[in-house]
């Protein structure tokens, strides 16, 4: 026959983890001897302290923002990693499980997580690095190298969303297809570097002039596509005039460049491709009727 274990033979002091009890005011009313032996807290100093006093400041915020609301809501929480301060003020990563009874007494179990914390840190660092790399790649794939504007690919992704939005909110949207006049001549007469400088400057011009909500892209070669939400033909005309004005500041040899602009105004019901085609047709007309002008698609 087995000996029946006597209740008094076992106590919480035998467990190799911290056990704490806090009252409704979240003051510590019990701590097992693990706190003294492993965490260097004189027990009489610990009793009466608010629970958050044994956590470091970041953990206090985490406690107040996640742990306490979880406890109030679910009456328990598990596997929360926090940093505890030992009796000498040294930070120790711990895993906390807690549950709350109907009197709001909370029973806390606290496990040292120093090794696990190192592993987590490695995982977090690896993820942060991957996230940063993904962000760079995403930006590279959506941006035009030379001008820093979005590229045609990105425009093709974002334009339909903008069109959908304008249809929903019943706003008109203006699409401007802009082409730098005689760009080939700049390249031929002054070299590609000069051509690149003009494209860059024009890109910068458009960025400075555009609103935050506008989509501005280099569509290819010396062609740029702008989508201006909540802009009717009157507004588009004002914008086009400003672009014609702004480019006079971009000088090549003794003159300044000019641009031709084709505009299509839509209520968002036509497909993106159709709108581009119409803006392109208008641009073609602008080119054919002497360049340095704006033509609306009719």
């Amino acid at each position: 026959m087995h000996d029946t274990p006597k209740k008094m033979q076992y106590s919480l002091d035998m467990f190799r983890c911290g056990a704490l009890v806090t009252d409704k005011q979240r003051r510590i009313i019990y701590a097992n001897s693990y706190f003294l032996e492993e965490l260097k807290w004189p027990l009489d100093e610990l009793i009466g302290k608010a629970i958050d006093e044994i956590f470091n400041r970041p953990s206090k915020i985490f406690c107040e923002s996640y742990l306490m609301p979880l406890l109030m809501h679910n009456k328990k929480c598990e596997e929360i990693q926090l940093s505890l301060l030992d009796g000498e003020g040294v930070k120790i990563p711990v895993i906390v499980n807690a549950h709350m009874d109907s009197n709001e007494t909370i029973y806390w179990s606290i496990f040292n997580a120093t090794n696990r914390s190192k592993l987590y840190q490695e995982l977090v660092d690896a993820r942060t690095k991957l996230e940063a790399q993904a962000e760079v790649l995403e930006s590279l794939s959506s941006t035009d190298d030379l001008t820093g504007l979005m590229n045609k690919r990105e425009m093709t992704i974002r334009a339909p969303l903008l069109l959908e939005q304008s249809q929903r909110f019943k706003h008109s949207i203006s699409v401007l297809m802009i082409d730098i006049d005689f760009f080939k001549k700049i390249n031929d007469n002054h070299g590609h570097l000069e051509g690149d400088r003009v494209l860059k400057e024009f890109g910068r011009c458009l960025t400075e002039f555009g609103r935050q909500s506008d989509l501005i892209s280099r569509f290819g070669g010396e062609e740029f596509l702008l989508m201006l939400p909540d802009t009717n033909s009157e507004g588009a005309n004002v914008c086009a005039k400003r672009v014609h004005d702004l480019v006079t500041k971009i000088r090549v040899a003794n003159g300044s460049i000019t641009v031709s602009i084709g505009i299509c105004v839509t209520d968002g019901t036509q497909a993106y491709e159709t709108i581009c085609q119409r803006a392109d047709e208008a641009l073609y007309q602008a080119k054919n009727s002497g360049r340095n002008r704006t033509v609306f698609f009719k």
């Binding site: 470091n56 970041p58 915020i61 009456k75 598990e78 926090l82 940093s83």
Partner: peptide
Amino acid sequence: DLEELLNLMDTNYIGWASYLAPLVMGTE
């Protein structure tokens, strides 16, 4: 402190991810 808080959120997310299936409600 606040940088460490962000870090804490990360480590806790990793810690939770394994069991973050619907949190069970207390019976009361």
